[in-house]
Amino acid sequence: MKMSENILSLDKVTMKFGGLTAVDDFSMFIDKGELVGLIGPNGAGKTTIFNVITGVYKPTFGRIFFKGIDITGLKPHLINQIGIARTFQNIRLFSDMTVLENIMVGQHSYLTNRKALNFLHKQDTKKYPKASWKPWLFSAIFKTPDYMKMESIMRKNAFDLLGKVGLQKYADLKASALPYGQQRKLEIARALATNPTLLLLDEPAAGMNPQESQELLESIRKIMEDFSLAILLIEHDMKFVMNICERIYVLDYGKLISRGSPEAVQNDKKVIEAYLGDKIYV
């Protein structure tokens, strides 16, 4: 099947809340190592699509494939363990925990991902090995050597990850004490800690000044190469998207109104109409 070449594909996804159709018959795909943008005016249903992909909502109709595997209706934690991580539009860090702990929470699922591994094993016995079971909870309570080793590996990895986004010096600070821009970076780092192959970024540049968003743009490019990721990015700021994305999907009122390269989309009459009167489109 052609599906398997794409890392993610949405097949005619519809999401209804009561009488309201937030996403209507939406299809898309992302190839390996691609950076795809998802844009549209406020309330167009972009975040709903993220929630559908990550399993927070179950779509009313349609199917979602990740690496050729049907993941429709899977629980959010399983979807994450299989390899999709995300950030939130309104930053949702664990603000009472330290920066380092935030990252380490992202790594916790290494201990408990047996169900996800077995799910993958069931899909393709050759490609994915069967998961082995270890009583990690008891190891954690009794502080067995293999748990302590795991803990130190997690700590080291978390430090390395913080180094990559330049937050190492804040490691022991509470997450809520970080400045706004750094919190955005921390949220991305936390998502990376779950070891994803696809990263969903929900308005990463929101509330940033041009210089900060330029910086962010560069670090996103770097992250993509370092972790060999595919990225799906929601953005309100059109310029930001035009600079970074290879392909763009445009949503309005839950419907796909345009898609293609940044230039093609920019000149699409429907897109201009949808954005007309929206201050951010200049």
Partner: peptide, 16 residues
């Protein structure tokens, strides 16, 4: 502790 702060965020971080 993460769950107690934000169950939704914990869930998408792979925590059951």
């Amino acid at each position: 502790r993460a769950m107690s702060e934000d169950p939704v965020a914990a869930r998408v971080m792979g925590i059951n």
